[in-house]
Nucleic acid binder design. Structure first.
Lengths: 181, 181
DNA sequence: TCGTGTTTTCAGGAAATACTGAAAGCACAG
DNA sequence: CTGTGCTTTCAGTATTTCCTGAAAACACGA
């Protein structure tokens, strides 16, 4: 290969890895803002933009993290259903790949957050309402009224999200969105 | 007042404050899960279920936090637009009250998160796409394809949220939701 | 059963984040 | 301009959260 071509391809691959790093870093920042730990988000980002399954060692190497850290976060990601492990026959090592379909990924996240955070919150709110429903002091009435409103809102949101998620790959959602002019 | 009545009202007020504490605590827990600091969420919770504006000192006292902490988080909450300060004539002290309308509160949160997190993320993605669009290696193509998909999805989500938020107090949203069967 | 390659666990340490308290700043009445 | 009451700031500290690395557990072929 000529000097020029070689130089170009080096430059190109540098450009790619710069962009890739930028993406991984920022996906990590975004994760923190939404209550997800940075490393977990970064591993997810890495697998998202990599076209093949990676081993734990490759991930450790790429992100410069320890084995323990990599393993723990890979397991968490699998628990969320955002990645899956792949076993290649003849290899004892485990490889990981991310769900690439963005809509499926979104549905998975919504489903899990509903289950882990929204439902429990609704239960707490219901409990608060029940425990104060019969009280008559002005303070109590205000409290109950507000918690009831929050509870109803969250149940509504929960229901909406269920419907959105259930529609999965159908085109119902994009279609329905037209009505939100 | 009779002994019985007195006893009952003591019990009732204990019941109320137990429920209130539970609510505040859990709202704090939920906050952390969504990337909001615990104290900020707790102050918000306290103001949400209190029927009058509270002073910094009352908040410090109720949540057992320092003045600095209270002040900083109150300012943040005001920055989000979730609370507002109230000046009573004749008083030099500042009081705070939360927006009580749940739908307005939701819109405020969505608007701010869009501005602070979603938009910047979209910009990063666009940047990544631009910087790699012309590369032809298999890796680069996979990268660009995936970031493009994420970018488009987030722009779509951003648009949907804008529409939802813009409809503000209208009944368009509840109505449209019927179509998400 | 042993040896080897791989994954899991977890105590201790590091880093990030949040909180405190006191001092400085500010605003206003007198 | 001065005293008073309230707010803001921020250096130092506490707390929470996360990460490391090494040891233990595991799984499987020989």
């Amino acid at each position: 290969m000529s000097g020029k071509t070689s130089t170009d391809s080096v430059a190109e691959s540098a450009r790619l890895s710069a962009a890739r790093d930028e993406f991984i870093t920022q996906w990590g920042v975004m994760g923190s803002a939404w209550g997800i730990n940075r490393t977990m988000a970064q591993i997810h980002a890495l697998l998202l933009v990599t076209d093949r399954a990676l081993s734990t060692d490759e991930i450790m190497d790429d992100l410069k993290i320890s084995r323990g850290n990599a393993n723990m976060n890979l397991r968490d990601l699998a628990g969320w259903g955002l990645i899956r492990s792949v076993i290649r026959k003849g290899e004892r090592k485990e490889f990981f790949e991310a769900e690439k379909d963005v809509w499926k990924m979104f549905c998975t996240i919504v489903r899990e957050r509903k289950r882990r955070e929204i439902r429990p919150a609704i239960n707490v709110l219901k409990d608060c309402v029940e425990r104060t429903d019969d009280l008559t002091s002005a303070d109590a009435v205000a409290f109950t009224k507000q918690t009831k409103a929050l509870c109803e809102f969250m149940e509504m949101a929960d229901g909406v999200l269920s419907k959105v998620v259930r529609s999965q790959e159908s085109s119902i959602v994009p279609w329905a969105l037209k009505f939100l002019k």
